[in-house]
Design a protein around this nucleic acid. Sequence first.
DNA 1: CTGTGTCGAGAGCAGTGCTCTCGTTCCGTA
DNA 2: TACGGAACGAGAGCACTGCTCTCGACACAG
Lengths: 229, 229
Amino acid sequence: MTAPSIRARVRAEMIDEIKAIARQHLAADGANLSLRAVARDLGMVSSAVYRYFPSRDELLTALIIDAYDALGAAVEAADAGTTPDDLRGRWHGVFRAARRWALDNPAEYALIYGSPVPGYAAPRDTVEPAQRPPVVLVGILRDGFTSGQVTPPPADELSDPVRADLAAISDLIAPGLPEALLARGMAAWTQLFGLISFEIFGRLNNGLDHRDEYFDHQTRLMADLVGLP
Amino acid sequence: MTAPSIRARVRAEMIDEIKAIARQHLAADGANLSLRAVARDLGMVSSAVYRYFPSRDELLTALIIDAYDALGAAVEAADAGTTPDDLRGRWHGVFRAARRWALDNPAEYALIYGSPVPGYAAPRDTVEPAQRPPVVLVGILRDGFTSGQVTPPPADELSDPVRADLAAISDLIAPGLPEALLARGMAAWTQLFGLISFEIFGRLNNGLDHRDEYFDHQTRLMADLVGLP
DNA sequence: CTGTGTCGAGAGCAGTGCTCTCGTTCCGTA
DNA sequence: TACGGAACGAGAGCACTGCTCTCGACACAG
């Protein structure tokens, strides 16, 4: 890797600056991001932005990938910061880290987990970073299973076709994990997403004031569901 | 209620027609609904639509309320069509009805359960219809509790502040339901929302082909969680 | 029958994404 | 070191959007 030319470095800085301003607009105005407004804030004309992003959707895609990576990094860091054998500690740490990141970055959370933008199809680049949080979750389950701390549910609680589907998924993200346990892990992941979405999108504004404790309680229910000791 | 004048009846029909066309556009183009395009399809000019809806947001709000009511009606009809004592039958019926409606009306589902439109605050009119599906769910739990078929979880699995919050919610939508059972019902409701959202928003496009069975399995896990016999 | 209020059409304003053109500046290569 | 191509920013312009205002036509209540 040779030293990047001044132009390349300036270009990289420009891209970062555009994304930073765009993130601010996102937080202020929501998903209907105005490329012209971003350009104005940068002191340049809208057509100049097109030197860096071929379209508004491409800019949004870049922000989406960044958001996935930021959430994934936060979750992985939380998991890495706990003692590996303390499964419940890891579990709660991961759940809390995901919620914390979402509460700190609600606009970006809405961007990646809200309704997809109409004509917008998620590019291939987004599927890998999008899998990081659930992979961490099932990683805890796999550790528990291999160490014997977690007893998997009976395999026959799954119908054959579903078990086959889950076996394929298991091969990709958590080889060796029993399908019935993976199914419960996915239930927990679905629950985590639903809990955060309800809170971020204001569906808990009905007198549920102690949200930290409520979240922890639901996290505990899911820990029980997957069989953490 | 006197007979409505011709003008009033024509106006009501016009409102319905606008909403019908708008729903078509919603299904085709997603949430960025163009009022002008709707007007074009109706053979009139955009300013004429403003005689019926004061703004695009008001039109969207009307569609949102209709969507909430349609989903609520579908769920309630499913619950009413089963035998009251068969709690698990009712449970699965409600879950399936909600999913069915969402799969049949993905754009409207995204409208009410996707990321909220930026500057858009849900009007008061939407909170009551929005509560209909969860109310049906906890209704099953309350029936099971009062009939003795469902044994509530130990009350001390909840911290005091959360139990107080849940007691207030319980008073509103399911008086007499133990808080710990309500908490599990809300977990099930969160799970239902998450399951549908993952499927509608394409987050299950990873080899999970037998979605009906997968959905039923997760529904069963939630039935176990809330303690249905 | 007459005045009031509703209706639809049209023009217009400010904003949007995006394209194209035109000088200017940078930078690898000869 | 000089040059030619590439990258860059500015500006004009197109088609579109939500929304407002005005104006003529019609319906309806008194």
